[in-house]
Amino acid sequence: MRVLVRRGLTRGLILAAVLSLLFGVPWWTIVGEPAWPTAVTVIGTVVFAAALLAFPVLMYQGHSKKARDWAARLGDSTLGAVWVLFVWSIIGQVASLVLPSTVVAVSVLAISAGLLVWGYTEAMRVPRIRRTEVEIPGLGPDLDGTRLVVISDTHYGPINRVRWSERLAAAVNALEPDIVAHAGDIADGTAERRKEQAAPLGTVHSGLAKVYVTGNHEYFSEAQGWVDHMESLGWDALHNRHVVVRRGEARLVLAGIDDYIAKGSGEEGHGADITRALAGADPTLPVVLLAHQPKQVTIAADAGVALQISGHTHGGQIWPFHYLVRVDQPSVHGLTRHGPATQLYTTRGSGFWGPPFRVFAPSEISLLTLRVPR
């Protein structure tokens, strides 16, 4: 009991320290340090104090088991805003060595406001198409030029994005894909709760295959329910399994494994298992593997996978968070090589998690053109 109390106290102190810094640095830069009139200082202090006190309550109300979408919207937006203010306040503190504190305060506010407006617009827009050619050793000539379209991290959630989802599906269909892959993190919430937003995924068309794997957020929201729901929408859930696509004489193995956290989630029958995913596959055929988190590429490389497709990172989503992502993941976005035979494509994702902002980390629909090596 004492150990549990001590751990709880330690976590509480760490959380308090983090929040104090996150809100305190912007308060000092914008309100405390400049020589504002007393009324401005008081009002600014009250605003920051109210936000600091309300934030943990809103996050708990919005993301607990009885999640309330209105609280999540407010809490997530506060998180995004204070992160941007925090980052630019630190930059402002450096600038204050040569600039007056009032100039720094106004500049931090103006830059942060501009970035948040732009970041919200970026988060809510239909993702841009990002085109990449990928050479796949062993790919048969009849599959040369195969158009593999990747979406990921749609994160349907507290903000109702049915119209966005419809436009996303239309953009994918306009690419006339041979294969469509969803690399996980469909939603924040159960399939029953977010089915209206996810419904347009059922309108996505492909010539050869339409496949999906679970992301970590499915394991916060009844993952098996999402596997079943995606199959009802016409997607082939690669739950530690594979399918073979054919064109002419050429064949390609499309495999998928559960998310990195699946085994520890308590979801019965879930857990990344590449041996089971590739069981029965012709070892002479190239393998394209869907695995939500880039760090699962170590498993892929050991299995001789030609290409792993992942999401999860969002490209950092809000600058400069990508530096923290890089600590946990081997790739933040783009095409990278891991070992002698395995490539990894990490998409920035199509939606956003939590804060409805994307700053210097644009969303994407990834169009991968598979090529026979020249």
Rank of each mutant, 00 (worst) to 15 (best):
P56T: 12
Y60W: 09
H63T: 14
K65V: 15
K65N: 12
K66V: 08
K66D: 15
A67M: 10
A67T: 07
W70M: 13
A71C: 03
R73M: 15
R73P: 08
L74D: 02
D76M: 03
S77V: 10
S77P: 00
S77G: 07
T78G: 15
G80I: 06
A81Q: 12
A81E: 11
V82A: 01
V82S: 01
V82E: 07
W83M: 13
W83S: 11
W83H: 14
L85S: 09
F86G: 12
F86R: 04
F86V: 08
V87Y: 09
S89W: 08
Q93V: 03
Q93T: 03
S96E: 12
L97M: 10
P100M: 07
P100Y: 08
S101L: 11
V104Y: 04
A105W: 12
A105G: 06
V108Y: 06
G114M: 09
L115T: 08
W118K: 14
M124K: 10
R125T: 14
V126E: 00
V126L: 01
V126S: 00
I129R: 04
R130M: 11
R130I: 09
R130Q: 14
V134R: 11
V134H: 07
I136W: 00
I136L: 03
L139Y: 00
G140L: 05
P141L: 02
D142C: 01
D144C: 03
R147I: 05
R147M: 07
V150M: 15
I151H: 06
S152N: 01
D153I: 13
Y156R: 00
Y156G: 00
G157E: 13
